[in-house]
């Protein structure tokens, strides 16, 4: 799968309390959750994400709670892909499970600036920083993850395997 767009950049340890404060966890609706996404650390996020649907962040993105509402809120707000130096493990599973593509690349994170245009190809295993004319290789998703994300999450895929 390919994702192309401008990026918004954040630092290390962006946590689930910042991504979606717990007080809003009385909904499971992506759009409703999306309205409050990142409001704790960036009040302009919802405006920015319209033009820049790719988040680039430092290490340990998504640390904290197990709330799946975090990737759901990001997806609901319009985020198309997250690139980080590393991800917290529960967030990683949750994002993949709901079909939000996320990839790790320390080099890419280090060498890009807010506003750069990136193209991520999860099948080929490559990130192109179009603004800077640089490429970074990433570990390609295996076929089953590729399929799972394209279908929008683990649901139909998992149940099919079990039947």
């Amino acid at each position: 799968m390919k994702v192309k767009g401008k990026i918004i950049k954040y630092g290390d340890n962006v946590n689930t309390d910042e991504i979606i404060p717990a007080t809003y966890l009385v909904s499971t609706d992506p759009e409703e959750l999306g309205k409050h996404c990142m409001e704790g650390i960036d009040k302009d996020f919802l405006q920015k994400v319209k033009q820049a649907p790719i988040i680039v962040a430092g290490k340990n993105f998504g640390c904290g709670s197990s709330r799946e509402h975090a990737p759901v809120a990001l997806k609901g707000a319009g985020v198309k892909c997250i690139i980080a130096s590393s991800f917290a493990r529960i967030f990683f599973r949750n994002a993949i499970n709901i079909g939000l593509p996320i990839v790790e690349s320390e080099d890419c994170v280090r060498e890009c600036e807010e506003g750069d245009i990136l193209e991520i190809d999860t099948k080929k295993g490559e990130i192109d920083n179009i603004s800077k004319g640089k490429s970074f290789s990433i570990i390609p998703y295996p076929d089953f993850l590729q399929e799972l994300i394209e279908k929008g999450g683990v649901g139909s895929w998992f149940v099919k395997q079990e039947k």
Binding site: S66, R67, E68, I90, R93, N94, N97, I98, G153, V154, G155, F158
Partner: peptide
Amino acid sequence: CGVGSTDLAA
């Protein structure tokens, strides 16, 4: 070990 809701559903 902690997981999210989709994993728990599975």
